[in-house]
Computed example of a mutant assay.
Amino acid sequence: MYVDVRSDWLSYVDEIPRALVAANAVANLEALEQSPRHSHQKAQLLFTVRGIINCEVEDAVWIVPPQCAVWIPGGLPHTVFGSGEVECISLFIEPPEAPNLPSECCTITVSSFFRHLLMRANELPERYDVDGPDGRIVSVIFDELAAAPVEDLRLPIPSDSRLKKLADLLIAAPADHATVAEWASRIAVSERSLNRMLAEQVGMSFGRWRRQLHVVLALRHLSAGQTVQAVAMDLGYESASSFVTMFRKMVGKPPSRYLLERLRSAPHDHGER
């Protein structure tokens, strides 16, 4: 099953007097259904063992590929859904004041050591001994979380209604080769105004923002089993090589290698449980 998002259950989680509360379940679903928008007092660390998890907050969509995790600060309204076969672990965290944990929503890379800690944390009793071995494991988890590298796997969503409409249009037709001026005219603004608004609200040019959208869509489709060639065509690239070049520039690695590195250790982790 997946993390229950009923308000009574979340209230119960928030009332447990521990710095870390595990969901005590590993989701293993063909497709993770979208949860209703919700929030909780404790922060949430959602670790993707396999598949792709998408986390939507008001101003961004976060993509969480295998062997990564999304950090959702406490009190932040969000919704979560999956792409492809999804397996994940969810931990609710009320961090102590000392550790330098993320202050904003972010996607982080999970090392092999950190991954084993998260697996162990999922087995902790609800009211573990804070001063015993379990409490020391939780302390090390906070240390690893504070040191984990952040990945730029986010699609910023502008607050302006016209730019939100543009985002919807781009998502609906990612292969559309319209010019920036043509996209601007579709939301009734000038090309200059469009570029200025995007720079102010998402800190990106139109071209980079659209490429970031393509990375998000590509990871969703690739995790569902589509080939690089099929994804390239769906996104409007003339060839698979041109799509791979874009992906490498944005992410640092070609898509097949990027996903392979994250999937390689997943079967071993599954066997360990």
Rank of each mutant, 00 (worst) to 15 (best):
Y2E: 15
D4V: 03
V5T: 15
R6L: 09
W9M: 11
L10F: 09
V21D: 08
A22C: 08
A23Y: 07
A25Y: 09
E33I: 13
Q34G: 11
R37A: 09
R37W: 06
R37N: 14
F47A: 06
V49G: 08
N54I: 14
C55Y: 04
E56C: 10
D59I: 06
P65E: 03
V70E: 00
I72L: 02
P77K: 10
E87V: 06
E87P: 04
I89M: 12
F92Y: 10
I93R: 00
E97Q: 14
L101N: 06
S103W: 06
T109P: 06
T109Q: 14
V110M: 05
A121H: 09
Y128R: 03
D134K: 03
G135K: 01
I137F: 11
V140S: 13
E144K: 07
A146G: 03
P149R: 14
P149I: 12
V150L: 15
D152M: 07
D152I: 03
L155P: 11
S161C: 14
A167V: 11
D168Y: 00
P174C: 05
H177K: 11
V180M: 02
V180D: 06
A181V: 11
E182W: 02
R186P: 08
N195R: 12
L198F: 10
E200L: 15
M204S: 12
F206D: 05
W209I: 02
R210C: 05
L213M: 14
H214V: 03
V215G: 04
V216R: 09
A224G: 13
G225L: 02
T227F: 11
A230L: 15
G236S: 08
E238G: 08
A240V: 10
A240S: 13
A240D: 13
S241N: 13
F243P: 04
G252R: 02
K253L: 07
S256D: 15
R257K: 15
L263D: 07
R264D: 09
P267E: 01
D269Q: 13
